[in-house]
Write a protein that binds this DNA or RNA. Structure first.
Lengths: 272, 272
DNA sequence: CTGCTAGGATTGGTTGAACCAGTCTGAATT
DNA sequence: AATTCAGACTGGTTCAACCAATCCTAGCAG
C-alpha cells in the first residue's frame, strides 16, 4: 500500500497512518485489525517493526490489544484524551466534525486562559514579567508589520510565558495539547489567523494587571479580548457548517466521506 | 534488577517501571538511558521487547529517541500532558509534589465541571436526563448506607453521565485523565473521600436545573457544592504540607527522597 | 600548536525466523 | 444435545544478524 515517506522511521509512519485511519473514521470502533503478520506484510515491513507501531497506538488509547484475540479499534470519542486533538483535526475529512470541535473548544480555551492568567497574577515573579514584556515588544513589532503568521507564531511564545508564569504543572499539562493543536492549525491554515485590532492593547492590559497584582483586571482584559476573537471565529465557521455535507472553502484538501456513519457530536435538547 | 509481576506483559511492565522512575525524579530530565542492548539485559529480556517499552515511553512524551544518540529523558514538567496525572500521583514519593498538584487541580476541576454542567443544560436529551436520574437514585441509596467508597464509585458514573449529556468531544477528552486520576485516588486512599452532607441535595439541584433548562441555577449548585468539598480537602492537605520534607500521615507508602533536587512548582510573587 | 579528517565504536533502526502462549472454532465423542 | 479436545488462529518473546546515524578519537595536515 502506497506509503509516502514522512520521516526516517517506519514504525512511526505506520503509527501515524493507522492513527489517521482511526481518527478519520475509516477504521471504526470495535473493528478488528488484521493479524500482525498480515499487517506487517501489507505495510511492507516485518512483525517487530509493525508491533512497535501497534504499541504506540495502544499507548495513545486508539486500540486495545489482547493476547489471542487480536488488535481492536477503541472508541476514541469515549476513551480518548486531548492528546488526540491535533491529530484528530488533521485526520478529519468531515468538515462538520472540525467545526463542532472548534466551536466546542473555544469556551474551554477561554476558561483555561483566564485561569492561567489568574495564576500568573498570583505567582509571577520578576523574571516571568520581564519575559512577558520582552515577548510583548516583539509581538507589537510583528503586529505593526502586519504579518499574521509571524504574530501567530510569536503569540505561541506569549502563551508559553503566561502559562510558565502561573507555575502550575496542571495548567501546563492542560494547555500543552491545545498549544500543539494551535501550532498545527497556524501552519495549515495561516489565512484563518486574523489580526484583531485590539490585540496589542490586550497584551499591554494583561501585563499591567499582572505587574500590579490586579487579578480581576487581568481576567477581564483576557475575557474581553477573547469574546471578540472567538466571536469572529464563530462567524467564520457558521456559514461553512450550514452547507449540508459539503466541503468548506479551505479547511479540506482531500475530502472524501465514503459513508454517512459519523456519530452526531452535538444534539440539541429535546423539548422538555 | 528485581521486577515484580504486574500483568502478563513484559514490555508493559518495563514501560510502567521506567515511567515510575522518570515521574518520581529518579531519572532526571536530560539524563541518558543506557543503550537498548544493555537495558534489555538489565531487565532480563531481549531488545525487541525492550524497544516496545521504549516506544510507549516515547508516545507518552517521557523520552526522546534519536538514531545514533540514544534515549534521553524528557522534561515532562514542560512537555507533558494530563495523561501523566494519574501515573505521576502514583509515582510521586515527594509529598510536596502531590500536595501542590492536588491544590492546583481543584480550581480547574471546578471550572471543567461547571462547563460540563452548562453543556448538559444546553444539550441533554431525555435519555441523558433519565440516566442521570437513575444514577442519582442509586447514589442516594449508597449515600444513606454510609459507605464512602461505594458512593465514590457511583459518583464516577454520575460524572460520566453528566459529561456524556454535554455531547462535547472536547469536554470528554479534557475530563478523561482527571477521571482516571480520580479513580486511582479512590482506590488508593479511600479514607480521603468524605461524605459531604449536602451531596444528595447537590445532585437533585443539578438534575432539576438541567430538566428545566436553567443554566445559571445548575452552575450555581455545582459551584456551591465544590466550594464546600474543596475547602474541606484543602484543609486536609495544608497541615500535611506544613511539615518540612516529612511524609504525611497516609499518602506515602515508601517515601524516600534521596536528594533535594525537586524543582519548585509554585513560587510566590516577588514583591512588586 | 591548531584544525581537519578518517575510521572505529556506540547508538538506534530493521529484518527474518522460530517458538511460546492465550483464545476461538468446530469436529469427534459421549 | 452437551462435552471435549485438537488444531488453527491470535499476540508475546526470543535470537542473531545486519543497516544506518552519530559521536569520539587518533592521526594527519596545516
Amino acid at each position: 500500500m502506497a506509503e509516502e515517506i514522512r520521516n526516517g522511521n517506519i514504525a512511526d509512519n505506520i503509527f501515524a497512518e493507522l492513527r489517521r485511519k482511526i481518527l478519520s473514521g475509516e477504521l471504526k470502533a470495535g473493528e478488528r485489525l488484521s493479524g500482525e503478520r498480515e499487517l506487517a506484510q501489507k505495510y511492507g515491513t516485518n512483525r517487530n517493526t509493525l508491533r512497535e507501531a501497534v504499541r504506540k497506538l495502544e499507548q495513545a488509547r486508539l486500540v486495545t490489544v489482547r493476547h489471542g484475540q487480536g488488535v481492536t479499534v477503541a472508541d476514541f470519542r469515549k476513551t480518548g484524551t486531548l492528546d488526540l486533538l491535533s491529530p484528530f483535526l488533521q485526520a478529519s475529512t468531515d468538515s462538520g466534525d472540525i467545526t463542532h470541535v472548534i466551536e466546542d473548544i473555544l469556551e474551554p480555551r477561554v476558561l483555561l486562559l483566564e485561569h492561567a492568567t489568574r495564576l500568573a497574577v498570583r505567582r509571577a515573579d520578576k523574571q516571568d514579567i520581564e519575559r512577558l514584556m520582552d515577548i510583548n515588544d516583539l509581538l507589537i513589532a510583528a503586529f505593526d508589520s502586519g504579518d499574521a503568521v509571524v504574530v501567530a507564531r510569536g503569540f505561541q511564545r506569549w502563551l508559553d510565558a503566561l502559562i510558565d508564569a502561573g507555575h502550575s504543572l496542571i495548567v501546563r499539562w492542560f494547555a500543552n495539547p491545545m498549544l500543539d493543536a494551535y501550532r498545527d492549525m497556524v501552519e495549515r491554515y495561516p489565512a484563518l489567523w486574523v489580526l484583531e485590532p485590539s490585540f496589542p492593547k490586550h497584551l499591554r492590559d494583561v501585563i499591567h494587571a499582572i505587574s500590579e497584582g490586579n487579578e480581576e483586571k487581568a481576567v477581564d482584559a483576557t475575557r474581553a479580548y477573547y469574546v471578540r476573537v472567538d466571536g469572529a471565529l464563530r462567524n467564520a465557521l457558521v456559514p461553512a457548517s450550514r452547507r449540508e455535507g459539503g466541503a468548506e472553502p479551505e479547511l479540506a484538501e482531500g475530502a472524501n466521506d465514503p459513508e454517512g456513519t459519523v456519530v452526531p457530536m452535538r444534539r440539541r435538547k429535546s423539548p422538555a
